[in-house]
Design a protein around this nucleic acid. Structure first.
Lengths: 214, 214
DNA sequence: TACCCTGTCGAACGTTCGTTCGAAACCAAC
DNA sequence: GTTGGTTTCGAACGAACGTTCGACAGGGTA
C-alpha cells in the first residue's frame, strides 16, 4: 500500500507516528542540521546522522519518511520561525532606517542562535524537489518581500520619491548577499559580536564605504 | 611541465597522458563545469558528464585521474585567469574609488563570460581535499587580499587615515557577499546588463542606500 | 608487414547509499 | 501475566556511484 499521491510527504506507516514534536525528534533535526551545515546535504549520509544522534539507522525512519523529508522539516521550521520573528522586528515603530537596522540585527541574532539550521536553509533549497521545494521557496519569497519593502522605504525616505522596482530589488539582493555570505567567514573570536557586526553592516548598507566612519 | 604536487593525484597510467590542453580536454572541462554549476559537484555523476560531452564513461579517464581532479582543474584554471585579469584591472591608474569600480565591473564581466566555471569556483571549494584544497584556497586568499587592498584605500582616501584592519576585512567580505550572491539571481533579461549592474553595485558599495540616486 | 603509441570504450568490480522488513524490546492498562 | 500499541534495531535489498581493466581501432614509422 504505497502512497500514490503525486507530491506530499505521504503517510507511510498507518496513521500514527511522527509526532512532529518531542525531545528525540528535536535532537534528530538538530543533529542532522549540524552535519548538513558542515558537509552539505548530499555529503551527509543517514548513517552519519544516526551516529551523531545515537539512533540506529533504521530507528530514525520512525520519525520521518525520507532524507529529503528530514531536510524539509529543518528548512520549513527554521524559516517559518525566522520570518515570524522578522515580521515583528520590521513592522515596529521608527524610521525606515531604524527598521532596516533592526532587520539586519535580528537576522544576525537569529543566525547566532540557529547557525546550522539557517545555513541549511540558505544553501540547500535546491536539494528539495516538487512541492517541498515550492513550499520553502514561498517562505523565502515572503522574507525577501519583507526586506524589499523596508529597503524601498529607506530609499524613498531619502530620495523623496519612490525608487524604481528594479533598484529596490537589486539593493535588497545586495543586502541578502552580504547577510548570506556571513556563514562563510564569521567567527566570533576574530570578528567580534554579532551586534557589532550588525552595526557595521547597517552602516555599510546605509552610507557605504565613504559614508561610514571607522 | 606537469605538476609534481605532494598530495599527488596518483600517476594512474604510465607517465604520459593528460595533455592539459586540447579541444577535447576543453570540452570536457566546460561540460563538467556546466553540470556542476547547475546541480552541484556531488550531484553530478561521471555518467552525466560523459553524456553531456559525448565521451564514454571510461574514455574520460584518459584526460584526468579522478572526479576530484576534474573539479580541481576547473577551479585552478578559472581562478588563476580571474586573478590575473583582476590584478591588471585593479592596479591601474585613477583614484581608489575608480579602481574599486573597475574591480567590480571586471569581476562581473568575467562572470558573464565564465558563469558556470566561476560558480563552481565560488561554491565548490569544500569539495576539494588535501593539497588541491589548499592550492585553490591560496588563490582565493590572494584575490581577497587584492580586493581588501583597494577597499582599504577607498576608506583611507575618504577618511583621511587608515581604517582598522577589521573594518577593511569586513567591508571586503560584504563586497564579496554581494558579488557571490549574484549567481543566485541574475538574469540578463530581467536585471539589465552587467555594466548597469556593476554601476549599481559600485554606487551601493561607495555611498550605500541613502547616498545613491536612483 | 610489423610495431608502437595515442585514444577510446564495453563491461565489470567493489563500495556506499537510502530505504525496508520482520522481529524484538519497552511499557502502561487491564 | 497477558495484551496491544509504541519505539527500536540488525540485517538485508536494490540501485547508483567512481573507478579499473583488457581489448581494440587508427595511424605514423620502420
Amino acid at each position: 500500500m504505497k502512497q500514490d499521491l503525486p507530491e506530499r510527504s505521504a503517510p507511510a506507516r498507518s496513521a500514527n507516528s511522527r509526532p512532529g514534536t518531542g525531545e528525540k525528534y528535536e535532537r534528530l533535526l538538530a543533529g542532522a542540521a549540524e552535519l548538513m551545515a558542515r558537509r552539505g546535504f548530499s555529503e551527509t549520509t543517514m548513517r552519519d546522522v544516526a551516529r551523531q544522534t545515537g539512533f540506529s539507522l533504521a530507528g530514525m525512519y520512525y520519525y520521518f519518511h525520507s532524507k529529503e523529508d528530514l531536510l524539509y522539516q529543518i528548512q520549513q521550521r527554521t524559516f517559518s520561525t525566522l520570518l515570524e520573528q522578522q515580521q515583528q522586528a520590521a513592522t515596529g515603530p521608527g524610521t525606515a532606517r531604524e527598521r532596516l537596522g533592526r532587520l539586519i540585527r535580528s537576522h544576525l541574532a537569529f543566525y547566532v542562535r540557529h547557525a546550522h539550521e539557517l545555513k541549511v536553509c540558505t544553501y540547500e533549497l535546491e536539494s528539495l524537489t516538487g512541492e517541498k521545494y515550492h513550499a520553502v521557496e514561498r517562505i523565502r519569497r515572503d522574507y525577501f518581500a519583507l526586506a524589499a519593502q523596508i529597503v524601498g522605504q529607506v530609499m524613498e525616505e531619502h530620495g523623496g520619491r519612490p525608487a524604481s522596482e528594479k533598484a529596490v530589488r537589486h539593493a535588497t539582493l545586495f543586502l541578502f548577499g552580504m547577510l548570506n555570505w556571513v556563514f562563510m567567514w564569521y567567527r566570533p573570536r576574530r570578528d567580534g559580536s554579532v551586534d557589532e557586526l550588525a552595526d557595521e553592516m547597517t552602516a555599510f548598507a546605509l552610507t557605504g564605504l565613504v559614508g561610514s566612519a571607522p
